[in-house]
Write a protein that binds this DNA or RNA. Sequence first.
DNA 1: TCGATGTATTGATGATTGTCGATACATCGA
DNA 2: TCGATGTATCGACAATCATCAATACATCGA
Lengths: 108, 108
Amino acid sequence: MECCTPVFEGVLNADEAVHTADLLTALGDPARLRIVSMMAAAPGGSVCGCELEGPLGLAQPTVSHHLRILREAGLIAGDRRGRWVHYRVVPERLAEITDALRPRVPTG
Amino acid sequence: MECCTPVFEGVLNADEAVHTADLLTALGDPARLRIVSMMAAAPGGSVCGCELEGPLGLAQPTVSHHLRILREAGLIAGDRRGRWVHYRVVPERLAEITDALRPRVPTG
DNA sequence: TCGATGTATTGATGATTGTCGATACATCGA
DNA sequence: TCGATGTATCGACAATCATCAATACATCGA
């Protein structure tokens, strides 16, 4: 006995799914969301790594770990200014997430 | 020696961050992304659970596991039609993610 | 009532993750 | 050159996760 509509392939193939899932996973952590939020809200759009440890309440290696994940996902970029590294959001990369989600929302 | 701008609190507090991270984590898996994609692309906007096992290449308990996570996150909803359960995307919940991300993107 | 079929749960397992202490690397001021 | 300070990496550990076989639950047709 058949159920309903015939089997179909999803519009999102396996590779696309892995790519988008990587971005979502990189951002899917409270600490990393707050980091990105801080950067977006910072005057000039960038924040010194040394400012994150305190507000987040995390140890320095942990912050560095999260920054690395965000950096490797391309969601943030950092440039060294002497002793410090200033990080900023990469808007195009963030938009990639919303772009991947928007078409999936049926307006109705 | 001071670094740069004074320490500031991120615009995203801990609770908000956890909430948004939960949504991103629920969606941050290739299988779950494809499931949502299939529902959004399905005629009528809903898909029978029995159709997912094949295209995804996953065992039935695994599919059920992913459906549960998406359901508990409020991203999908399912109603039983006799022997089968039809699932559909909850657009408002998906929009919650894009809404949480959009304001963080500085346009410039 | 009973077998068939779709769905959910349980239990187990290997892999991944978030966290931090210890430590190494990088850069500055003296 | 040397100590101080910001950053990155290493190693370890507990927690979580994705996966599936086995099994239980739910519903239909006969």
